[in-house]
Computed example of a mutant assay.
Amino acid sequence: MEDLTSLPQDVRGTECAADASDDALLRQFAEGDAGAARALTDRLAPRCFSVAMRMLGNRTEAEDVTQDAMMRLWKMAPKWVSGQAKISTWLYRVTLNLCVDVQRKNRPDRLDDVPEPEDNDLSAAEKLQEAARKDALQTALSQLPERQQQAVILRHIEELPNPEIAGIMGISTEAVESLTARGKRGLAAILAGRQDELGYEDD
């Protein structure tokens, strides 16, 4: 995702350890280490993009949101206080807020750029069914209430733990559990009657 990095051009390029913490990398970037910025981008930008793509269903908009979120990270880097929160939690929150802004501008939802499956081992029929599943899930997600959509994406697609989701969304863990449960029921209701067509098994 080279075009999403938006790295400042006036910092020095140095090597940084791949196993460094997010906090350490952000601190190194704030001190002028371009290598740290690139390592942190490689680590975090794909997560932003994944959430934005699920929220928006449009690749161009998801890329724009990811770039904007990373730019905000670079701008706040000098002010970051280690230990006050996880950088990934902060970035997820920014990404969600940016997606909500885009959604509110673009109603009704746009679903014209859902990525195709990449498994080359699938048969033509299997590829069509997989594409139909992704389209159906994206459409169903877009019909959920905003907070349920966010909770379901973070829990069941990004596979984040409930306490981290609570931090991202600014709510209690119990509220996350409630939103996720209601979101799953909502998805099941929206997709009801299409299990055979999409190849889903009943839970």
Rank of each mutant, 00 (worst) to 15 (best):
A34K: 08
C48Q: 08
D119W: 06
M71I: 03
L25D: 02
A37Q: 06
R38W: 09
P108N: 11
D23Q: 09
T60N: 09
A24L: 11
V81K: 04
M55H: 03
T14E: 12
N120S: 15
R43A: 07
V11G: 01
C99Y: 03
L96C: 13
L122I: 08
I87A: 00
R107D: 10
C48S: 14
C99G: 04
N106E: 10
V100A: 15
C48T: 02
C16D: 13
D121C: 08
P115K: 02
A45C: 13
Q103P: 00
S50C: 06
G57A: 06
P108Q: 11
A85L: 12
P108H: 10
R59T: 15
A24Y: 03
I87Y: 00
S82E: 15
A45F: 00
D42F: 02
W80S: 02
R93E: 10
V100S: 09
L25C: 04
R104Y: 08
R54H: 14
P78N: 05
N58S: 10
T66M: 00
D113I: 14
N106L: 07
E31V: 00
G13C: 06
W90T: 02
A45R: 04
E31Y: 14
M55K: 07
W90D: 03
S88F: 05
G83W: 06
S50I: 06
N120R: 12
R12P: 00
P117R: 13
R27W: 14
T89M: 01
G32M: 07
Q28L: 13
D113W: 07
E63Q: 09
V94W: 09
L96M: 12
P115H: 03
S88A: 13
N97G: 11
V114L: 04
T89R: 00
T41V: 13
Y92H: 14
Q84C: 08
D23W: 15
M70A: 03
L122E: 03
R93K: 14
P115D: 02
E15Q: 12
S88C: 09
V51R: 03
L111N: 10
N97I: 00
A36T: 01
A39Q: 03
R59P: 15
R110E: 08
K86C: 08
L98Q: 10
D113E: 14
K79Y: 05
L73V: 05
N58Q: 13
W80C: 02
C99Q: 03
A24F: 05
W80V: 09
D119F: 07
L25P: 06
P117Q: 13
A39K: 04
K86D: 15
A30V: 00
E118S: 12
D23S: 14
R110W: 05
L44T: 05
D112P: 01
W90H: 07
V114Y: 00
A30H: 02
P117N: 12
L44M: 06
K75V: 07
R104Q: 12
T60E: 12
D19E: 11
R59H: 13
L122Y: 01
D23K: 05
F29P: 13
R107Q: 14
M71P: 10
A45D: 08
R104M: 12
L91I: 01
S50D: 14
G35F: 13
V100W: 13
V102A: 11
D119L: 08
M53C: 05
E61C: 04
Q28S: 14
Q84V: 15
F29T: 04
T14D: 10
D109Q: 12
T95C: 10
D42Q: 14
R72V: 01
A37W: 00
M55I: 02
V65M: 07
